[in-house]
């Protein structure tokens, strides 16, 4: 079970002066139950890629298979694909619309034809998964705080029981506490077997959490590998607009000056390499 993308290309406004090649020849494999991150600078094609994974955009070139189902125009599987792959947009709280949080969470499963008696269970489970207080369920989603709105929006996708969760910059605009909480939540979902595809420009989170990272630059694949290998690659082949996390940059600077420290995003590793592990 996996998402397989091969030779994917996408062009916006083809044949007009606004023609933009958003993606060119992108290939990767994202196995179920793993954490896969897509990083790149603003305009690198990350969001365009995310929108292909549940068929909001359909491939203009290349192929995408979700657990063997092809994402393509008029595919009878599109409905299944959209159930399997939950997509959380950037600023998902802007899509909240229902009168209560509970209705918001029930909307998708009702659309999938889940029997009405199962809906409350789905809603409660999804709310619990994201850590939304039960007291929130009866309230208007517009009266929630920023962090809670984000959680409600994610829960409204989880209530469809997707196998893969694709999130486009889910931590944008959240404070560090909410950001950590969200990262913890996603890592919990991954442990339960859900595939997490995180689109982010936060290389720090990607390095810490991912099994594999795909780096995009101007719509092309730069590297797709494990976090350590990606860090090594980015140090020798910098991608414009994508900065190494400060600690990684520090470790790289120290190595260039002949210090025997690992290339790392964890300062404790630098410290123990330089001074031995006290404490």
């Amino acid at each position: 079970m996996s998402i397989i993308v091969s030779g994917l290309g996408h062009t916006y406004h083809p044949g007009t002066p606004l023609e933009t090649h958003a993606l060119r020849d992108i290939s990767f494999k994202f196995p179920a139950g793993t954490w896969f991150s897509v990083v790149g600078h603003t305009g690198s094609g990350k969001s365009t890629l995310a929108q292909h994974l549940n068929g909001i955009l359909l491939p203009m070139e290349g192929e995408i298979f979700i657990d063997g189902l092809e994402v393509k125009e008029k595919s009878p599987s599109l409905r299944d694909i959209r159930r399997k792959v939950g997509l959380v947009f950037q600023y998902p709280e802007q899509q909240l619309f229902a009168e209560t949080v509970s209705d918001e969470l029930a909307f998708a499963p009702r659309n999938w034809g889940v029997p009405e008696q199962d809906i409350p269970g789905r809603v409660a489970a999804a709310a619990a998964q994201v850590g939304l207080d039960e007291g929130c369920l009866g309230r208007s989603p517009f009266h929630l705080s920023g962090g809670e709105k984000r959680k409600a929006a994610i829960a409204s996708v989880l209530s469809s029981l997707p196998d893969y969760l694709v999130l486009d910059e889910p931590t944008a605009g959240l404070d560090s506490f909410s950001r950590k909480e969200l990262t913890r939540l996603l890592s919990g979902l991954r442990k339960e077997g859900m595939g997490i595809l995180l689109v982010t420009h936060d290389l720090d989170i990607a390095l810490q959490m991912s099994d594999r990272i795909l780096v995009l630059d101007g719509g092309r694949r730069t590297v797709c590998d494990t976090p350590a290998a990606v860090l090594d690659h980015l140090r020798s082949h910098p991608v414009p607009g994508l900065q190494l996390p400060e600690i990684a940059a520090l470790s790289a600077a120290l190595r260039e000056r002949g210090k025997d420290v690992p290339l790392t995003w964890d300062w404790k590793e630098i410290k123990s390499a330089l001074f031995g592990s006290q404490k």
Partner: peptide
Amino acid sequence: EPTAMLDPAGRA
């Protein structure tokens, strides 16, 4: 929060 939506380079 002018940098909330920017990537690290845009932020810098």
